[in-house]
Design a protein around this nucleic acid. Structure first.
Lengths: 262, 262
DNA sequence: CTATTCATTTCCACTCAGTGGAAGCCGAGA
DNA sequence: TCTCGGCTTCCACTGAGTGGAAATGAATAG
């Protein structure tokens, strides 16, 4: 396993995966040439591999000749972390039903939070996150609450970097952030106010798993609701406790902390 | 492209994909040996490829040494059909909020319905389908409604096979099914009564896209509700119309009908 | 503590699948 | 008709991939 392999050149496997990952950057369908450029592979090689991936349904080709990730890939990937998501989902749904606010569940992946569940209606949607999407930890409530309860070395490593600043309200001074995390751990919840996107604020509580922090459960609200956000705390805590119970028996080592801190 | 390639042996790509697909059969984590058997590859080959997939996060290894599909794969695959799912999701959420019943959206994939959205709370859950899961079309309301509006040759091809029978209530006589499909097209909705699983019934309406049938939108209820199911029709139709409007601009060729009828 | 068994990991000489430059093709526009 | 850009096909070369076999490790019994 040794060091990084990502040099995107040696093995066939790496070429195949590089092709798939090329689709993460752009949200539109890609032409063969674009895939070739995005993956750094010669055109003819790309052509051959793409054709085979398409055969298997891992890529699909639209009417315009462009390619997209295929439904087979999606279908297959639904099995990843399925136990966890299926166990947690109805509770997140309950959280939404009880609050009427955008509800989300996220875990840490490296230096970011990865949203694994997100429920919202057609009404208010100040969306920044999405299921399967990532955001920096220090800009989100779920991220901060996870970071706050993480082991010390994770916190330290995290703060010891250049921190992104999505909006002018994002806290990026390491010292003050460290204090904020301490306070979060004391009070048992985290909040943000327009730190990832203007117009929205958020609040989140921790979800524990086998004694360690496992995930963050939170709500996103319009900034106008910021003052009264904390009224949702009882519900958040109740739902969190339910999720903890429902997922206690599920082995997560494979999901969490696997990618340490890249 | 020519004929089928699935012979699971020739190319490296096929070996890699065979390994990934090995995880679809079993819901538990797999040992190396199991993956080797499941994919039909020699152990040492499996070992090498699995190691590389793990490096990339497409597989992950639990504490017990067993492998599972990795979160990276899931994350990547969230981009497949994302436009469609993100557009439709809040409306399915609304359907759930308005009815309080398990709400689902499904498309046709070959001879089966593939559930792409499913929303339910912690209460009643007579679950048979799941997001990313498949069921035979003739046993489900969403499936029947899709089949009913499909082009003639699709219907014919479908009925011209041995039809599975999950429960004793499943309709599997081709002639009678054809009649039922005609009736569904006339009345504009389909129902089932314990046809996929005892204890539950369902009702579904069509969702059109560029003039053709695109998906099925439905509810699953307890059998005790069967008699009054149709009271949800107005809501179902309203939500369906909203989904049609919201997805009209999204190109779907790449999703639907791609895998004709395997 | 040793023997046995079964799963995983490592090794390495052989060879065929994969490669990619180049040429051919095709459709759109001038 | 000619041109251009992107896609597809071809094919001789070669090193990435292969897989049998042996080493290692973990688990259990004797």
């Amino acid at each position: 396993m040794a060091g990084g392999s990502r040099e995107s050149g040696r093995t066939v496997t790496s070429r195949v995966l590089a092709i798939l990952e090329a689709f993460e950057q752009s949200r539109t369908a890609l032409s063969l040439t674009q895939i070739s450029e995005g993956s750094g592979l010669p055109l003819s090689t790309t052509h051959r591999l793409v054709a085979e991936l398409t055969d298997w349904g891992f890529l699909s080709r639209g009417a315009n000749g462009r390619y997209q990730l295929g439904i087979r890939l999606w279908e297959l990937a639904q099995n990843a972390g399925r136990q966890l998501r299926e166990a947690a989902r109805p509770f997140v749904q309950d959280l939404f039903s009880l609050t009427g606010e955008t509800s989300q569940l996220a875990v840490r992946e490296g230096h970011e939070v990865l949203y694994i569940e997100r429920i919202y209606g057609t009404k208010r949607v100040p969306r920044a996150s999405r299921v399967g999407g990532r955001l920096p930890m220090h800009a989100t409530a779920v991220g901060k609450v996870i970071l706050a309860y993480e082991e010390e070395w994770v916190r330290t490593a995290y703060l010891n970097r250049q921190l992104e600043r999505p909006t002018a309200h994002t806290h990026i001074v390491p010292g003050r952030l460290a204090e904020e995390l301490d306070q979060i751990r004391e009070q048992g919840y985290a909040t943000t106010l327009e730190e990832v996107r203007l117009g929205s604020c958020s609040i989140a509580v921790p979800v524990f798993h086998t004694g360690r922090i496992g995930a963050g459960l939170g709500l996103v609200l319009l900034t106008s609701q910021a003052a009264t956000m904390t009224r949702h705390l009882p519900v958040l805590r109740g739902v969190s406790a339910h999720i903890e119970r429902a997922t206690a028996h599920i082995p997560l080592e494979s999901l969490l902390g696997s990618h340490a801190l890249r």
